[in-house]
Computed example of a mutant assay.
Amino acid sequence: MRMFITGVAGFVGSTLAKRLLAEGHEVVGIDCLSDYYEIEIKRANLESLESPGFTFIEEDLNVADLDHLLEGIDVVFHQAGQPGVRKSWGSDFSIYLSANIEATQKLLEAARKNGGLKRFVYASSSSVYGNAERYPTLEMDRPRPMSPYGVTKLAAEHLCSLYAENFGIPTVSLRYFTVYGPRQRTDMAFTRFVRAAVRGEQITIFGTGEQIRDFTFVDDIVEANVKAALVDSPKGSVFNVAGGSNISVNNVLALLGTISEKPLDVKYIDGVAGDVFRTGGSTDSIEEVLGWKASVPLEEGLRRQYEWARVAFAAPVL
């Protein structure tokens, strides 16, 4: 099959591309290589994908000829977007509007013109829930984002549902719960933690560390994408993709200290606007419809990320 991946140079996009190429699919990937985090990391991700079956386009979704690029494509995996809760406030919000909402609308319009498209898989986020009404949170529970980032992810998700209902686009939205693993973005918590553990540096925690998160290993996220693409589900479906860890940040640090066999230097500072206290998603729906269930326990996944970090961060600079 011919697969189209947006944000292919990113953490999830490149991991997904590697899986699809290994299974013999043809992959067309697009990425604008934005400088939200180190471009060198994205280029290294792309180098790992070098294959006769891989085609890379360096371009912004908002200006690319998407009608042409989607010709003959069987499945679209829309992983691209501007990440980050903390940076989405203030003047940077316009970047989130363009990258998360406008780009999604343009991609959906191009999908309308592709009569043979089998699935459009959108990478949504647990940020759409904000401080949820209950835990584990169900897909039908009322979303109430706590950050501009979450607002844009929810808006793009609604666009997917609208295009499914009005034009029959076979969309599936996957609400990711805190993805981690080797090659995770350098601004994300687990990468900051394991890098500091390897180098003996201080770890900065926003808030008390008692905030609870549902962490999901990247290979499980990739598996959910593959199943969303290949297993039948109603058009416009929305699924939680959660690892089921439900653990506090402080307990994660304790676990990392055990794995690294080193004392960790932790500093606590004020929390950040938009950060929720708890996340935790029910996966009953995705288990029933797609047959997906997380398979990598947190301790195993964190150990894998730490072992990766021992190599990636051994030198003074990445």
Rank of each mutant, 00 (worst) to 15 (best):
G257R: 15
S126D: 12
V128D: 04
S48Q: 14
N131K: 14
G168M: 13
E109H: 10
P170I: 10
S245R: 07
L61T: 09
E71A: 07
V231I: 15
Q305D: 05
S14A: 14
N251H: 15
M188H: 14
S237D: 05
F56I: 09
Y129D: 10
P182S: 03
I57W: 09
T186M: 12
G7M: 10
K262D: 10
R112F: 06
A229C: 08
F77C: 01
S48M: 14
V27Y: 10
M3K: 13
D74W: 00
V272F: 08
G116W: 04
N62F: 07
I212N: 02
S245G: 07
I269W: 04
T216I: 07
G53M: 10
E23W: 12
A294H: 04
A294T: 03
F93T: 06
V272E: 11
A156R: 00
Q79N: 10
N45W: 07
P148T: 06
S282E: 08
R119I: 06
G236I: 05
V231A: 01
G168F: 10
S98C: 03
V238Y: 00
K42N: 03
V75M: 02
N225Q: 12
C32T: 11
L61M: 11
S48C: 10
Q82H: 13
Y96Q: 06
D65T: 11
H25W: 10
A315L: 12
S245Y: 04
R19N: 06
D214K: 12
G281C: 08
E223F: 02
L162C: 15
S237G: 09
P148K: 05
A155Q: 08
D67T: 09
E40T: 14
A164Q: 01
L174S: 09
V231C: 02
A17Y: 07
G244A: 06
E287W: 09
S248T: 15
R134K: 13
C160R: 04
Y96S: 04
M188Y: 14
D270K: 15
F190R: 01
E109A: 09
E139N: 01
Q202D: 13
E109S: 06
Y149I: 12
V289P: 00
E223S: 13
S91L: 03
E50T: 15
V226H: 04
R134M: 07
L70Y: 05
D141G: 11
I259V: 14
D74Y: 02
D65N: 15
Y37E: 12
E261M: 08
E139G: 00
G29N: 02
R19Q: 07
K262P: 09
Q202C: 14
N114A: 11
F56Q: 08
G236C: 04
E59C: 07
P83Q: 04
Y135I: 07
A189V: 15
M146V: 11
G274A: 08
F206T: 08
D67S: 11
F190G: 00
P143L: 06
S94V: 11
A242E: 08
T55W: 00
S173V: 09
N246I: 05
E102D: 15
T55P: 01
I95F: 10
F217Q: 08
T216R: 04
K235F: 12
T104Q: 06
K153C: 06
V252S: 04
F77A: 01
R134Y: 03
T216L: 13
S127V: 06
G301R: 03
N225C: 13
A196H: 09
I286M: 07
